[in-house]
């Protein structure tokens, strides 16, 4: 029940208000740019039939003609994938430590994981600028303890983007894994050791497979939003950080081309549908197994 709740929070947030906005965006993606209010044509003002008859896939064809778009999708996929793996590597030990912590500490630890959500996401990302910049805390600290002589350039690189994404989405990774590990019967580990496993082997053969569903849920909850991430790459990333979120922003705000921007968004969603469906299936399987 607790687990269901923990999963449901981000999950509902992710999917609840999804279908109607998508229909609107899809319609705009089939329209043409126009200097007017709203900045595309046709609209419902032209009558439903006229409107429908004037829609076409021109914008989608356009997206295939410039390599910018597929490169941006690919680069976003790569960044999201690497960030997800990094988040897993950081989040799993944390979730594990939490699940192994004394019972009375766990609510506090859980609270600490959720605590960052209480401040604005933007402020937290800005804080990283202060930490990672050439004159920032990180460099000052490293210079002070003498590990480096010249400041490291971390800000405005992909490294900073990874740090930002891992930091921001870490709770989405920790919570489902924690809830899986929390329910893990400790005697299973003892049984594995009893049957000849070293600690490490028992972890690998029992703990990991039994927290698999938590890992999968956490990975999707990180991967899906990271793929379309805009704020983190634009604040922490450099000019070479190519992400579809930024391309989308430019289509929308610089080119004021709502139809092409919508087409970019629709394709992004189509790419995301695959992991979303997989995620859903995983959750269903989980629910069935629990019955």
């Amino acid at each position: 029940m607790k687990r269901a709740f923990l999963i449901a929070v981000p999950y509902v947030w992710l999917l609840a208000l999804f279908l109607i906005p998508f229909a609107v965006v899809f319609k705009i993606s089939l329209s043409d740019i126009e200097l007017a209010i709203p900045p595309y044509t046709p609209t419902m003002k032209d009558g439903l039939w006229t409107m429908l008859s004037q829609l076409d896939f021109e914008n989608f064809i356009f997206l295939t003609q410039d390599d910018l778009y597929w490169k941006a999708y690919l680069s976003s996929l790569q960044i999201a994938l690497i960030s997800t793996v990094l988040t897993l590597m950081v989040g799993y030990p944390m979730a594990y430590a939490m699940a192994r912590a004394p019972e009375q500490w766990r609510p506090t630890l859980l609270m600490l994981v959720i605590l960052p959500f209480w401040t604005s996401f933007l402020i937290r990302v800005y804080a990283w600028i202060g930490i990672l910049s050439n004159e920032g805390f990180l460099n000052q600290f490293l210079l002070w303890i003498g590990i480096i002589d010249t400041p490291l350039t971390v800000l405005n690189t992909n490294t900073a983007v990874y740090i930002g994404i891992v930091y921001t989405y870490l709770p989405f990774m920790i919570l489902p894994i924690y809830s899986a590990l929390d329910r893990l019967d400790g005697s299973l580990i003892e049984a594995a050791e009893d049957l000849g496993c070293s600690r490490l082997k028992a972890f690998w053969l029992v703990t990991i497979p039994l927290s698999k569903n938590g890992i999968i849920a956490g990975c999707f909850l990180v991967f899906i939003p990271a793929l379309g991430e805009f704020v983190i790459p634009s604040l922490l990333g450099g000019s070479g950080t190519l992400m579809i979120g930024k391309v989308l922003f430019e289509e929308f705000f610089s080119n004021r081309d709502w139809p092409v921007a919508s087409a970019v968004a629709v394709i992004l969603l189509l790419i995301l549908i695959v992991p979303i469906v997989l995620f859903q299936r995983n959750e269903q399987k989980q629910a069935e197994a629990e019955k």
Binding site: D66, L68, K71, G240, T241, L242, E250, S254, N255
Partner: peptide
């Protein structure tokens, strides 16, 4: 504007 935006992306990211 589209050409200019595209050029700008290319200048910044090389793509």
């Amino acid at each position: 504007q589209r050409t200019v935006t595209r050029m700008w992306t290319k200048i910044k990211s090389g793509t």
